[in-house]
């Protein structure tokens, strides 16, 4: 798998009808079916979004995310992927259609870590626990456990300005995990990081995902990142945002950013993404 010939084949493959669910051409053919169908964690039905009299941002978007699934939402600028994430986070209400998320709600992480600059890493995580109603005595222990999970136990007492960008995002991840919600929404959390740090955080996030079983919706404009991380990649078209196509990945273990199968999937997705962008040229 992941040979150059597979890449070439995928690049020259005839365009399938939009909306048809397909596995990547090199990924064993049949779409990955779960052994027992996992219960749905997030259900988005016919959602449209428009701000005031402005243009339609999202148009008839329907999406289901299984519990424990790692979904990447991919699209060019203006495809409304952050808008969709905002709807899932409950920061906004859709103009029409319905959004259903677990009753416990969703935790969220953004491109900027948005840590409170006057609190240490530990206290930032503790704040999430406090607002969740965790008792004072338990907060400290729990916060240190979570910081250890993201390999930051030694930096617990440092303030955000004493941490690197990657460390801040890991604190933000620990804080999001402290919310203890079944769903984790991530809006381009690694976009502002350098490539080396981003690779390391991909490994980190994958490990945390497997260890905690969270349902993750990960928004990105980075095709390779989506191919590296997602169990499923959903491509959104731009202006208005609508689901164009999606890919399922059968083998998600042991992927790296430089893995051939990640590269092959990225090539295939990029082809579709570019087609979608060209459509906006006229």
């Amino acid at each position: 798998m992941g040979t150059p010939s597979a890449e070439a084949a995928s690049a020259s493959a005839p365009a399938p009808a939009a909306g048809v669910r397909l596995a990547p051409s090199f990924d064993g053919g049949a779409p990955a079916r779960r052994v027992s169908p996992a219960p749905v964690a997030i259900r988005v039905e016919h959602v449209a979004q428009r701000y005031g009299d402005g243009p339609l941002v999202l148009d008839d978007v329907s999406l289901e995310v299984a519990r424990g699934e790692f979904l990447c939402l991919l699209g060019a600028s203006g495809c409304g992927k952050s808008t969709l994430l905002g709807l899932l986070a409950g920061l906004d209400a859709p103009t029409s259609g319905t959004v259903a998320i677990p009753a416990e709600g969703a935790a969220a992480m953004f491109q900027e870590s948005a840590l409170l600059p006057w609190l240490s890493a530990r206290r930032n995580v503790e704040l999430a626990l406090k607002l969740r109603g965790v008792g004072r005595a338990e907060r400290r222990t729990r916060a240190l456990e979570l910081l250890d999970l993201v390999n930051l136990a030694d930096a617990a007492e440092r303030r955000p300005h004493e941490l690197s960008g990657g460390m801040r995002q890991r604190v933000a991840l620990a804080r999001a995990l402290a919310q203890d919600r079944p769903v984790l929404l991530m809006d381009e959390p690694f976009a502002a990081l350098d490539a080396i740090t981003r690779d390391v955080l991909h490994d980190e996030l994958e490990r945390v995902w497997r260890a905690t079983g969270r349902t993750i919706v990960f928004v990105t404009h980075n095709v390779r990142e989506a191919a590296r991380l997602g169990e499923r990649v959903v491509l959104l078209g731009s202006r208005p945002g609508r689901v164009v196509r999606e890919w399922r990945v059968a083998r998600t273990h042991g992927r790296r950013i430089e893995s051939p199968e990640v590269g092959a999937l990225a090539t295939e997705i990029t082809e579709h993404l570019r087609r979608e962008i060209r459509r906006n040229a006229a």
């Binding site: 920061l91 948005a114 607002l131």
Partner: peptide
């Protein structure tokens, strides 16, 4: 107060009172 901090407060589930005490006023210091 940076809007991201207010947004984080809402995402973390802070009500109006906790939002003021834990986020807005320390940030306004």
């Amino acid at each position: 107060v940076p809007p991201q901090l207010r947004r984080v407060g809402r995402v973390l589930g802070a009500g109006r009172f906790r939002q003021s005490v834990d986020i807005v006023f320390p940030a306004a210091l």
